[in-house]
């Protein structure tokens, strides 16, 4: 892939550059997104109608266990799903009002990276082991901004300093394996923010890191987000991290949103039995003598999602209606939504 052969990647200074401006601060608008995986054994419904929005300067957490569809959602937004086996039969992902899913490939590539960037869990496998990290960062500027080598290199050093890599000038020539896990994640972040994206998606950015390093990386992400007024989508299973960082949170279960709320409401007074169960099941550092209560069972098989509410076989509140009717995500209090027939009871509990 080079600038000359890929007409889709237009240098920012070239004429005809497309600019995207958010309307009323709205960056992303995901509407009724569906994703299926076609396998030998049938169609696995990974995402079944997910809608949410992201505004400038907002940090949104997508919370869920493995298989809930949280990472697939991010990949669909990024346009990095493997298709096939994946298929998007329905839905739209609007970035500043423009649907990314119907956008021509070359334009989409330009958006990816320059407008929407992503950080992955495993920094080591996301960086190319055979090139120095500085070169990899500089290449972003050369490709997208048409900078010359030395300018790009200088920019790379500046970025590495920004993400607090000590002795950036000397280490710009080092290779990914010469960095510790935390430092590699910083380099990933530097690459992600290099082109000033408006949206940053972080997929389990600290899961592989030690707790002290995790705290550093999360505070760096928060700092950068506020400084650049980015929209941040944080994908995680860690309730602690969400409580520390996010403004708003959506909870996913079996490819659907079961609850959306600002984090304060979500933790103080969850409106879905799944969210409640999760909160009761995790041990807390600041509590002693606590009784852990587990949610029974397992997340459902995506090939055979139970009829009605997908959570009903594990839900201790489930009634007959839950086994038949799929509860819609509805507003249960101002600014908060729940997909439970008995949401009011759950909130009052």
């Amino acid at each position: 892939m080079t600038t000359t052969t890929q007409p889709g990647i237009r240098p920012a200074n070239a004429t005809g550059k497309i600019t995207y401006t958010p309307v009323d601060g709205r960056l992303l608008d995901v509407e009724d997104l569906h994703v299926e995986f076609h396998t030998d054994d049938g169609i696995a419904k990974a995402i079944n109608g997910v809608s949410f929005t992201l505004d400038q300067g907002e940090s949104l957490a997508i919370l869920g266990e493995s298989g809930s569809g949280k990472s697939v959602t991010a990949q669909a937004i990024m346009g990095i799903l493997d298709m096939p086996p994946a298929k998007i039969p329905h839905g739209a992902v609007k970035y500043c009002g423009v649907d990314l899913l119907t956008m021509p490939d070359d334009r989409r590539r330009w958006v990816r990276g320059a407008e929407i960037a992503m950080i992955f869990q495993d920094a080591l496998s996301s960086l190319n082991p055979v090139f120095p990290v500085g070169w990899q960062i500089a290449e972003m500027f050369r490709q997208h901004r048409g900078m010359n080598k030395s300018d790009a290199q200088a920019q790379a050093v500046r970025l590495m300093e920004r993400v607090a890599i000590p002795a950036a000038k000397e280490r710009v020539k080092a290779y990914p394996h010469q960095f510790s896990g935390g430092m590699r994640q910083r380099i990933m972040i530097a690459m992600a923010i290099a082109l000033d994206p408006a949206v940053l998606i972080a997929d389990e950015p600290t899961t592989a890191l030690d707790v002290t390093v995790q705290a550093q990386i999360m505070s760096l992400l928060q700092e950068l987000q506020q400084e650049r007024q980015m929209g941040l989508i944080l994908i995680t299973h860690d309730l602690g991290v969400v409580a520390d960082v996010a403004d708003r949170s959506v909870v996913m279960y079996a490819g659907r949103l079961v609850e959306t709320a600002n984090v304060y409401d979500l933790y103080r007074n969850p409106a879905h039995p799944y969210t409640r169960g999760l909160l009761e099941s995790i041990p807390r550092l600041d509590q002693k003598g606590q009784t852990l209560a587990a949610i029974g069972g397992l997340p459902p098989n995506l090939l055979r999602i139970p009829p009605g509410c997908a959570f009903n076989p594990r839900c201790r509140m489930a009634k007959d209606v839950c086994r038949v009717d799929l509860p819609a995500l509805r507003e249960v209090a101002s600014g908060r939504h729940s997909a439970c027939h008995f949401a009011e009871e759950v909130i009052d509990a």
Partner: peptide, 30 residues
């Protein structure tokens, strides 16, 4: 929080693996 019991309506302290029991009973989805 020694005396605070979790709300039994949302989760329980049982150690049985409900998945295996449900599988035997033929409940769907598990």
């Amino acid at each position: 929080v020694t005396d605070v019991e979790p709300d039994e309506r949302f989760a329980d302290t049982d150690v049985r693996d409900p998945a295996t029991i449900a599988a035997v009973e033929g409940q769907p989805g598990m």
